[in-house]
Design a protein around this nucleic acid. Sequence first.
DNA 1: ATGATAATGAGAACGATTTGCGAAAAGTCA
DNA 2: TGACTTTTCGCAAATCGTTCTCATTATCAT
Lengths: 139, 139
Amino acid sequence: MDNSAQIETDLRAEGVRVTRQRLAILHVLRMASDHPRAEDILTRAKVQDPSVSQATVYRTLAMLEKAGTVLKNEFDGAGARYELAGGAHHDHLIDLDTGEVIEFHSQKIERLQAEIAAELGYDIEWHRLELYGRRPKAR
Amino acid sequence: MDNSAQIETDLRAEGVRVTRQRLAILHVLRMASDHPRAEDILTRAKVQDPSVSQATVYRTLAMLEKAGTVLKNEFDGAGARYELAGGAHHDHLIDLDTGEVIEFHSQKIERLQAEIAAELGYDIEWHRLELYGRRPKAR
DNA sequence: ATGATAATGAGAACGATTTGCGAAAAGTCA
DNA sequence: TGACTTTTCGCAAATCGTTCTCATTATCAT
């Protein structure tokens, strides 16, 4: 089933106004299979609604992040990359040659992280695990 | 034993000039038990040598990073934090309340990371594992 | 000491992101 | 629907951390 309308309903319930610009940005995020940067999101959103501005992209992303609807990733320094939060938690493997981002999940690693934090006297609020690698040269 | 002189000897061997400013910055890094930001390093270095400038701090840190002498960490968005590379590899646990950084290492996690990457067809070049947590409220 | 050349300080430039502000649109209520 | 309140908007200027330019200074092999 489609959760598009659901997100909008939720936002409205929180007193957030559902504007054309926000719909355009949400649409871009729904369609994206990559992890686009703010600049990419602006470009793509403008296709649907040319009135979208840079400021609104940043403001909307910040607001959606706070609402838990999008995840903000700061991979390699050159600007944050965003994704819709919908699915299950996952970590990222970044291809150093192409910039491609691959999602993965390991229950074992999650468990180990919690154990380590506990030993140090901490509760984990969130974590970031990024692997940076290359596909071995074909031979 | 003292590896202070060693670092300088190595640098000279690579044709790098050992200047007052660089010594001041290296001194700051040796003394630091926290993971200072560029700004902190500048402030502290100026105590030993007031002539040190912001530009030189960044240039020196970049050059030391390339030389493998310092590690650059981009934790939570608000500017990179540096540490001397001397010891063994480790990951970081950041205290969300105090900003304190705790180092830890888990051979198990390292192994799992390599396994996961291999399954996806990748060789890991480097990785970043950061846990963000809080010390449970005393009760 | 001298000279070739690398490193420096000051400040301008940069790229990503944020903000101030008056204008425009959303939601509300009659 | 029209009038009103409040949020959101676009634009441009402002910030922040970092890098660069360039004229000057300092290091180090000689």
